[in-house]
Amino acid sequence: MELFFQQLTNGLAIGGIYALIALGYTMVYGVLKLINFAHGDLFTLGAYIGFTLLTSMNLIGKIGPLPTLFLFGIIIMGLVGIAGIVLERIAYRPLRSADRLAAVVSALGASIVISNSIMLIYGARFLVYPHHILPNFTINLLGMKIPFMRIAMLLLSIILMIILYLFVQKTRIGTAIRATAIDHGAARLMGIDVNKIISVVFFIGPALGGAAGFMVGLYYGQLNFMMGWMYGLKAFIAAVIGGIGNIPGAMLGGLLLGVIEALGAAYISTSWKDAIAFFVLIIILIVRPTGILGERVADKI
C-alpha cells in the first residue's frame, strides 16, 4: 500500500507536468491542426533558462527561496512564450496554407534547431541545478512521507490549468481562441484577428511548457538538451488520450498517463517504463481514436 501511494503521488506529480506540456500541444493542434514537434524543446528551453537564472543571480539570499522561484517562473514563462511566438512566425506561418506534411517536417526541423542550439550554447553534457535552493522536507500525509516538491508541483500544475481553463472559457480572447479553433474563415468574418489569436496560443502553450521545464529541473535537478523529446512525446500522447484539441482532455490525459506510467513502472517493470505510454497510445487509437473527451466527427465527402 505504501508503494502504491508513493507511486500514485509521484505519478500525479509527473502527470501534472505532462498535462501542462500537453496543453501546449492541444491548443496549437486546436487552432492549426499541427503537431508542434518543437514544443518539447521549448520545455527544455524553460529548464535551461531556469538553470541560467538560478546560477547567475543570487536572489535567494535577498528575498528568500519561494519568492525567487516564483519570480523566475514568471520570467521563464514570458521568455519561452516569446520564443513560441517567434517559432510560429518563422517556421509555421509561411506554411499555413501548405500541405500538412510540409508543416510537420518544418516542425521537426524547428525541434532539431532548438535542441541543437541549446546543445551548442550549454554543451551536450548533463547539467545539474543548484540543489540547495529547495525545501526538500517531506509532508506527512495519512501516515506517509510525501516529498513537499511533489505536492507543490501537482498543486501548481492544477492552479495553472484552472487559470488557463477560466481564461479560455470566460474571457473575450478565450472565446476568440475557441472560435478560431472551429473555423478560421468564420472567425475572421466575425472580426477576429486570426493571426493575433494564433500568436496568443503560441505564447500561452510554450509559456506553460516552459514552466513545466522549470519544475522538472527543480524536481529532478538534471538537465539535458534532449530531455524535451521524451517529455514532449509523452505529453502529446497524453493530449491524444484525452482527446486532441480538448483542453480538459489534455489535463485528464496528462494526469492519467502519469499515474499509469508510475504504477506500470512499479508493478510491471521499470525498464519498460518508457514503452508503457506508447502501448497506451496504440490501444487508445485502436479502441477510441478520438480520445476520452474528444468528439466524433464524421468525414465529409
Partner: peptide, 27 residues
C-alpha cells in the same frame, strides 16, 4: 491494426513502434 489512422496519428504511432522496438532490444 493502425493502418486506418491518418496523418499525425499514424506519425505518432509509428514513433511509438520504433521506440518500443528499441526498448525491447535494450531489455
Amino acid at each position: 491494426p493502425i493502418i486506418h489512422l491518418r496523418g499525425d496519428y499514424l506519425l505518432i504511432v509509428t514513433i511509438g513502434i520504433v521506440e518500443i522496438v528499441r526498448i525491447a532490444l535494450v531489455n
